[in-house]
Every structure is written in structure tokens, then in C-alpha cells.
Nucleic acid binder design. Structure first.
Ligand SMILES: [Mn+2]
Ligand SMILES: [Mn+2]
Ligand SMILES: [Zn+2]
Ligand SMILES: [Zn+2]
Lengths: 154, 154
DNA sequence: TCCTTATTGATAATAATTATCATTTTCATT
DNA sequence: AATGAAAATGATAATTATTATCAATAAGGA
């Protein structure tokens, strides 16, 4: 099988996982859209366009697998379906946080961190890690509120 | 109807909502357990013990309502069910963030913020608010990783 | 190419949440 | 306190995201 994302494939091989067509299609979709927040269904539909044989169950299985490996991050924005995006650990993925509109569900990414923010976050992670003997792998930061559009209307 | 949580009741009256028995029972449960993360089912069971007539649908409706009003915060820790807790805006609710174990689902609250952290968070919220014309009401901060127990085993 | 076995896709099953609707409560008005 | 319009409720059915099952398939080492 052709290896589209060498870094991910190497990790899979290292863990004894097989590089399958379906997995590559899904990884490719996620890799090409680092700034999107796809639901399982959206990923299924895109994968289906590339290879109509792909099943829904396998999409879920693959997403779980990748999340478990720390390659993608599973998150919920409150609309009932989980969403997935590449973690910052992946190349080409700028680290970012989210603004979530509780009115319309819109999600804004923001990547503008000050050095101060980055340092503090790192420090906090380190402290928590030690205090609670907790191995921190990543974090989810969401600011919830009302977006520009909804603010005008409401 | 007797008003158990005056502050919440005032807000409800102001918005033209009715102070019902079922709502009071649910608000009371949440108010008394500011540090817990109850699922809808857990709240239903507790409410049911107080008043066996209360229905599951109304629990969901009330939780949605309170979340919409900003009185409680709806969050997901990845186990498929939403969880609810009083927002920091409520009295007696110390603001806190979460450590979530991706292995066993355990959730640790931590409240130990440095002044530095608080200030920075406020500053960031203000900047984002202006830049994106986004009215921020609260935030969710989760550090994901492996807890002490799971670390030993795994 | 062959063989073992991880993985897959179709499908059924599960579980959380939401919609429906007749009945009950709330509460402003009398 | 009694009245009545409207909001809210509870039982139930319906929906929807996710998971389990299992025979068939495809990876990949030999
Ligand atoms: Mn994002
Ligand atoms: Mn908490
Ligand atoms: Zn909005
Ligand atoms: Zn754990």
C-alpha cells in the first residue's frame, strides 16, 4: 500500500498496525484539512467519494484508532456529534484554540498566541503534571459565547 | 412556588420563565453539588428520588434551558454523555479546570490558579472578544492525558 | 505465491437525546 | 380564593450518533 503520510505510517508500523487503503484515505483527508473540524459523517462522505466501498463503521474505527494514537484530537462543540482534527503534533498543523458560538454553533479557530501565553501554558501543564502525576498529552481550550452575527440579531 | 435559589429564580422571572417544582428540584441538585459533573441520567435519578413524578424529558429540557441562560455549563469528556455543572458565575462555585484521562475517563478538577494565570486568561478573553467581535461568556479548559493509575498499569 | 490474521463492510443493536401531544401547573387577573 | 390563558410537564415514540457482530477480504511476512 502506498504511504501518503510517512510520519503517521511509520508510527502505525511501529505499533504493528496495518497500512490499509481505507486508513490511508481517511488520514489523507485529515492531513489535507488541518484547520477543519470534521464529523465522522463528513469524513465518511468524503472518503466515500474517493472510494465508494468504504463503510461507515470503519470510519469510526479509524478515527478512534488515530485519536488513541494521539494523531488526531476528538472534540465536542455541543451539537451532539464528535469532531476530529489533526493534533498540533502533526507537521503543518498550527496549534490553535476555539471560539464556539452557543447560539449558532459556529466555530472560530485562533492561532495568535503571545509568547507569554505559550510559556504560561507550558508552565501550568508541567505543574499539573507533577502535582497530579498526570501525563498530559494535549489540551482543549474553548471560549464559549455569542458570535458577531448572532450578537446583531439576538 | 418556593424559591430555593433566589439568584437563579430572579433571572428566570426576568426572562418570563415560570418557577416550577421540577425546575427547582433540578436547580437545587446542581447548586448543592458545584464540584460534580453530573450526566442527565444522574440528575434524573437524584430528582426522581426527591419527586418520583419527574420525567426524563423535563430533565433534559431544564438542563438545556439553564445552559442557554448561562447558569450551568454543558461539557463532554468523551464518554458519549453530556455533563453539567454550575458555572463560575454562580456563588460558591470556585472556578476550575479539568484533567481528563483518555484511558479510564477519570476527571480531576483543579482550582489552583496563580494570579498570573487569571490575569492572562482575562487579557486573552478581552483581546479575542475585540478581535472577533465575540461576546465570551465562559470557557472550557481540559488537559487530556493519562492519569496516575492508568500510567502504572499501561 | 501462500497463509495467517488484522481489518473491513454490511447490518443489527445500543444508548443518548429530541419530538409529540394530551394533561397538568403556574401565575397574572379578577 | 377562584378563573383562565399559556407555559410547562410527563409518558411515549422517534431520531440519531455510535458500537457490536460476523462472515468476507486484504495486508504483509515467509
Ligand atoms: Mn480547530
Ligand atoms: Mn468540574
Ligand atoms: Zn453564532
Ligand atoms: Zn485513567
Amino acid at each position: 500500500m502506498r504511504h501518503k503520510n510517512p510520519w503517521v505510517c511509520r508510527r502505525m508500523v511501529k505499533e504493528g498496525l496495518r497500512i490499509t487503503q481505507t486508513r490511508m484515505v481517511i488520514i489523507d483527508i485529515l492531513t489535507r484539512n488541518p484547520e477543519k473540524h470534521f464529523s465522522a459523517e463528513e469524513i465518511f462522505l468524503m472518503a466515500h467519494r474517493i472510494n465508494p466501498g468504504i463503510g461507515f463503521a470503519t470510519v469510526y474505527r479509524t478515527l478512534d484508532l488515530l485519536a488513541q494514537m494521539g494523531i488526531i484530537q476528538k472534540m465536542e462543540f455541543g451539537d451532539g456529534k464528535a469532531r476530529y482534527e489533526m493534533t498540533e503534533a502533526m507537521e503543518n498543523v498550527p496549534h490553535h484554540h476555539h471560539l464556539v458560538c452557543t447560539e449558532c454553533g459556529k466555530v472560530i479557530d485562533y492561532t495568535e498566541f503571545t509568547d507569554e501565553e505559550k510559556e504560561l501554558l507550558a508552565k501550568v501543564e508541567k505543574e499539573l503534571s507533577e502535582k497530579y502525576k498526570f501525563k498530559i498529552k494535549n489540551h482543549i481550550i474553548q471560549f464559549c459565547g455569542i458570535c458577531n452575527n448572532c450578537g446583531k440579531r439576538g
